[in-house]
């Protein structure tokens, strides 16, 4: 069926099988392959993109559910010549190895800082009435839906912390 949504600020018109996931629409139809397919089942987080400013697993949602939505992918955050601060921090802190989970980690990282800023609590927030802090524990908890089998977690937390401190 026909639909459109906005990807990285650009309106995209598509005609898609109703079974096509948002992830496959991005990767296979728009050739925006920065969003990765690690499991296709919402288990790994490699496909994380932002829809309406909130992060979601693009493999767990059908493209046809996003008529008119505003979608941001890793390609929309920055480019090799003009890195987003989070992308630059990942390079500086070596917050990746094979790079396959990296776009998902970075999209999640950007969204996590917004969630903390917005006062949204997490499992490790001790006081639900207080604003959650920008602590390593908060970051680790909120990033735990993004698996990195290369095990760059310690460096990723350093990268996110640096960006958070720059923003503060």
């Amino acid at each position: 069926m026909k639909l459109f949504f906005t990807v990285n600020g650009e309106r995209r018109d598509l005609e898609l099988d109703t079974r096509t996931t948002l992830l496959d629409a991005l990767r296979e139809h728009l050739h925006l392959t920065g969003s990765k397919k690690g499991c296709d089942h919402g288990q790994c987080g490699a496909c994380t993109v932002m829809v309406g400013g909130r992060r979601i697993n693009a493999c767990l949602t059908l493209a046809v559910m996003h008529q008119g939505d505003e979608i941001t992918t890793i390609e929309g955050l920055g480019s090799p010549d003009k890195l987003h601060p989070m992308q630059a921090a990942f390079v500086k802190h070596d917050g990746y190895q094979c790079g396959y989970c990296t776009p998902g980690q970075i999209c999640s990282s950007v969204a996590v800082l917004e969630e903390i800023k917005a006062g949204i609590p997490s499992h490790v927030t001790a006081d639900l009435n207080a604003r959650p802090g920008l602590t390593a524990d908060e970051i680790r908890e909120r990033m735990s839906g993004n698996i990195c089998r290369c095990g760059a977690y310690s460096n990723i937390v350093d990268a996110i912390t640096e960006v958070a401190e720059q923003q503060a």
């Binding site: 990767r27 050739h31 925006l32 392959t33 920065g34 969003s35 990765k36 397919k37 992918t73 890793i74 390609e75 955050l77 920055g78 480019s79 090799p80 890195l83 992308q87 630059a88 990942f90 390079v91 500086k92 070596d94 990746y96 790079g99 396959y100 990296t102 776009p103 970075i106």
Partner: peptide
């Protein structure tokens, strides 16, 4: 030294096997 492929990997521009469109 920072990885020379770091900018590609962090911006989603590094092509993996399924992505040689």
């Amino acid at each position: 030294v920072d990885r020379i492929d770091g900018r590609l990997k962090t911006t989603g521009q590094a092509p993996y096997a399924y992505e040689h469109n």
